[in-house]
């Protein structure tokens, strides 16, 4: 248990020179590794931008080339946080509003998804009773829920959140259920020998054994949430990146649309990474 507190070996001084060389070699290897990851996408990005620039820089092109996008939207890029009241806000504030809706809707979906998943994963009666219904409901496209949600809630905000929740809940639920069904018989036998009661079994075996599956579901769910929110906001309005997109279209500001698309993509990627990271943190390095 105790950490050995041996004095540093005498040879440290002698090793100094080689140690520096080793350090440098290590740095070089790290730099190469980083380059290997970063350089290829940078090259393909440059090629893509060049093609785009060439294809759309002629007169009468239907879309602006990248240089024009940047020039047109420079005010928006440079001032993401401006707020002139009402709906006239910086892009960061729009995205922040959308993220808040996603946070609420996705939290509801996660909680409900895990609970339902545990239910149909551990009770075969519940599975037989509920699975056919879920299989039908989960094929309903997110936006198809919007009219019924607007009718039920009579307000756009909770309706948008409902659409997110109902979109993200299925992958969380189904993956959780699969995880529970896949708990190895060995773990169950260990629990039986130890005489764990159902509550102990749930917290000490079921939940940790299912964490990787739950996070797979959450990862799919967060991506779907982000898809759904942008679409829902285009229809219901209010501050949000989806509304911004629709507003730009109505004002024929194509450059702003393109900028919004890029931001939507980047935020989507970020959300995916956050869930992956959280999964690794909770489930250990083997989770993904």
């Amino acid at each position: 248990m105790s950490v050995e507190a041996e004095p540093m070996p005498q040879t440290t001084g002698m090793l100094k020179l080689p140690a520096t060389a080793v350090l440098l070699a290590g740095l070089k290897r790290r730099a190469l590794d980083v380059a290997r990851v970063i350089v290829p996408p940078l090259i393909s990005l440059a090629v893509l931008l060049a093609i785009w620039e060439l294809a759309f820089s002629g007169k009468g092109a239907s879309l602006p080339p990248p240089s024009k996008v940047v020039a047109d939207t420079w005010e928006l890029i440079a001032h993401p946080f401006f707020d002139r009241g009402g709906l006239d806000k910086g892009l960061a504030l729009h995205i922040f509003e959308s993220l808040k809706r996603v946070a609420v809707g996705f939290s509801i979906a996660s909680l409900a998804g895990v609970l339902l998943g545990v239910l149909i994963g551990s009770s075969s009666l519940a599975y037989r009773g509920l699975d056919p219904i879920f299989q039908v409901l989960r094929t309903v496209p997110p936006l198809a829920w919007l009219p019924i949600a607007l009718a039920a809630f009579r307000e756009s905000q909770p309706a948008a959140i409902f659409v997110i929740a109902v979109t993200a809940v299925w992958p969380v639920m189904l993956n959780t259920a699969v995880g529970i069904r896949n708990i190895p018989q060995d773990y169950r036998n260990v629990a039986r020998v130890l005489r764990l009661n159902p509550l102990e079994f749930f917290f000490k075996i079921t939940l940790p054994a299912t964490v990787p599956y739950i996070f797979t579901g959450l990862k799919i769910g967060i991506g779907l949430s982000w898809l759904a929110i942008v679409a829902a906001e285009m229809l219901v309005g209010g501050v949000g990146i989806g509304f911004f997109l629709w507003d730009s279209w109505n004002s024929s500001l194509i450059s702003e649309i393109i900028l919004a698309l890029i931001y939507i993509g980047l935020v989507g990627l970020l959300l995916d990474r956050v869930i992956t990271w959280a999964g690794r943190l909770i489930g250990g390095p083997g989770t993904f």
């Binding site: 190895p184 060995d186 773990y187 036998n189 260990v190 020998v193 075996i205 940790p208 054994a209 964490v211 489930g283 250990g284 083997g286």
Partner: peptide
């Protein structure tokens, strides 16, 4: 009646 299983059956998260 503690059992030692052939495939160890240790819980990987512990």
């Amino acid at each position: 009646r503690a059992v030692v299983f052939q495939n160890h059956s240790l819980l990987p998260w512990l």
